[in-house]
Design a protein around this nucleic acid. Structure first.
Length: 189
DNA sequence: ATACTGATGCCCT
DNA sequence: GGGCATCAGTATG
């Protein structure tokens, strides 16, 4: 049973919808990976987004094809890994529950936590600057969406100074290994 | 538990 | 020169 290319599965989704869909999906990078448990959406007219001021050399992948990777260096030290949605929109992957290649992740990281936080996750998975702009559905890089729609936690994004009010951070309810706790969730009935 | 600091790349004004 | 979509280490309640 074949499956649609990842780019087609997410075709037309904005960053917020894609961020919600990616929680619970499986991410594999060259033999390491796990279940995505935390994401953040970054929009096109979003003051906290790298795309806010339009295309540059650094953010070019955010304006490239949907369903490709956007990888950038953060604070000069860490890499952060995103999935491109509509033009100028992307989803930051902030945490995984590791399932595959855990020994390799431990060698790269040295100590726990392995994938709790965007910089730790890229180190554990061996993400490289050259992965910027790369497609999924390859032997190096793949995402498998989950059929289930798990309960999500929602909260403000981490580590930004603008648009702090937007509830564009999403987490898998009940997951351990979130990069930070979520605020108390509103009651759903 | 929170608070600060240094490491470092690179786009922005 | 300023400001980060961060982390690890250290210091202090």
């Amino acid at each position: 049973m074949t499956r649609l290319p990842f780019a087609e599965q997410i075709s037309g989704l904005g960053a917020v919808d894609l961020a919600r869909r990616l929680v619970g999906a499986r991410l594999l990078v060259r033999g390491t990976g796990g279940t995505i448990i935390e994401t953040e959406a970054y929009g096109r007219d979003d003051p906290a987004s790298h795309s806010f001021r339009g295309p540059t050399a650094r953010n070019a992948a955010m304006f490239g094809p949907a369903g490709h990777a956007y990888v950038y260096r953060s604070y000069g030290i860490h890499l952060c890994f995103n999935v491109v949605a509509r033009p100028g929109e992307a989803v930051l992957i902030r945490a995984l529950a590791p399932t595959t290649g855990i020994d390799l992740m431990k060698m790269r990281r040295g100590s726990a936590p392995l994938c709790s936080g965007p910089g730790r996750l890229t180190q554990a998975l061996g993400i490289r600057p050259e992965d910027d702009g790369a497609p999924f559905d390859t032997t190096d890089l793949s995402i498998t969406l989950s059929a289930a729609r798990p309960d999500l936690l929602v909260g403000p994004r981490i580590g930004i100074s603008r648009a702090q009010d937007l509830p564009w951070r999403f987490g898998l309810a009940g997951a351990s290994g979130l990069s930070r706790p979520f605020p108390p969730q509103p009651i759903r009935q």
